[in-house]
Design a protein around this nucleic acid. Structure first.
Lengths: 228, 228
DNA sequence: ACAGAGCTATAGCATTGATATGAACGGAGC
DNA sequence: GCTCCGTTCATATCAATGCTATAGCTCTGT
């Protein structure tokens, strides 16, 4: 069984690198330290990964496996918008729990450089946005909605990492602001009337059944005139 | 006049470093290259800045001077929300025009590390948020509004840098989504009722004066019950 | 048993950030 | 005028880093 030993060394190198990165998140790490921790010498590392960037890529891919592994356990609530919400929170939680991985994945800003593994969560998000668009839930093209969510989600996560201070309220505010922006809860001028109808219809005991029905009728009349 | 020469060498070092950084944005740079470009040897650099981080800090401070210099030219439109809009666009424009500086300022993500110079634009933003709050324009505490704007503004700028592709539509969408979120155009549960009242009151001819008055009264009743 | 492929070690290179030592220079005080 | 001292800068060097050339080891397939 050669693959046991080969795979073992490779995984041990990745695991050692991951440990070092997790031990000093955001800091640079030394290949020799990785080799010492793995009990190997440098040419072995170079045999498997070719360069430091190759090792980093492998570690990042490993990090995304972890991330998507956690995430896949709770997928598909049925509602794409709700899935985006859950994905947002999972994204932030992963970043705060694994700042070392996360800074490698999204914190190394360099023009034109985005690790290939980044595309996986991006495509999941794009799929959710497409489904939401199919259901008519979006007021912007699905690709822009996905980009909007991704950008703000990464932004709020990175910021919490650099400030070394989780801020659930901020994350929730940005999340809801983003979802409102792509679903257009804010900007349709006719929406307040529709919402008012829903609110009134939900509590018929306040005004009584008859008055509520009349209220709904009147509001609908006004809404009809608004379309002009 | 010794201060002429001292200041000269120091500035020349910063300028050389800035040039190198601008020449290969996001990449690491060598102190020897900086010294060669400035026509000095390394101990001179260490005399002025003490360490590489010291030089980076000086360059970052210089970058913020540039940024705030551009920005101060167009301050104070009178409306704090409008100022936030203009500040957003200036922020993105500076990041895209100076990706080297920008990645040093906001792209080096490391837990607990935020350059001191970052606080300057942050405080300007905080001031605008306070003014907006004084005018009753915000539905969230001013510190959270400022954090929300800063986070999303940085996020959308960093993303455009890593993708090496300006996306004005995305920037505008995120900007307006953020402003909507902090000014509460979207999320107050009582807002639809209030807005419906305004819409109905604005067009009394649709239902007639009496019915409109009654409608407003009923909507207000429901709104009062909503507060429970 | 033999050859070849895959894996690993020894040793070394060039570059990097950082420092110890000391020389040149100009102003301050006796 | 002369010495003293702080500022500024160069020579030389260190330790650590990423990377590689060469060669030896082990295991597999025939």
């Amino acid at each position: 069984m050669p693959e046991s030993s080969t795979s073992d060394t490779r995984e041990r190198l990745i695991s050692s690198a991951a440990d070092l990165i997790a031990a000093s998140p955001g800091e640079d790490f030394s290949l020799r330290a990785v080799c010492d921790a793995a009990g190997v010498k440098m040419p072995t590392l170079y045999h498997f990964f070719g360069s430091k960037q190759g090792l980093i890529d492998a570690v990042v891919a490993h990090g995304f496996d972890l991330y998507l592994g956690e995430k896949s356990a709770m997928e598909s609530s049925g509602d794409p918008i709700q899935d985006i919400r859950a994905g947002w929170d999972a994204h932030v939680a992963f970043g705060l729990a694994n700042p070392g991985f996360y800074t490698l994945m999204y914190g190394k800003v360099r023009p034109g450089y985005s690790p290939a593994a980044q595309s996986r969560p991006s495509e999941i998000l794009r799929g959710l946005a497409d489904r939401a668009a199919d259901q008519g839930r979006l007021v912007v093209p699905p690709e822009q909605a996905a980009a909007h969510v991704l950008v703000t989600n990464i932004g709020v996560t990175l910021r919490q990492i650099v400030l070394a201070r989780p801020d659930p309220a901020l994350s929730a505010a940005v999340r809801e602001g983003t979802i409102a922006a792509i679903t257009g809860t804010a900007e349709r001028p006719a929406a307040p009337l529709t919402t008012a109808v829903e609110i009134a219809a939900a509590r018929p005991e306040i005004l009584g059944r008859t008055q509520t029905q009349l209220l709904v009728e009147w509001l609908t009349t006004i809404a009809a005139h608004q379309e002009d």
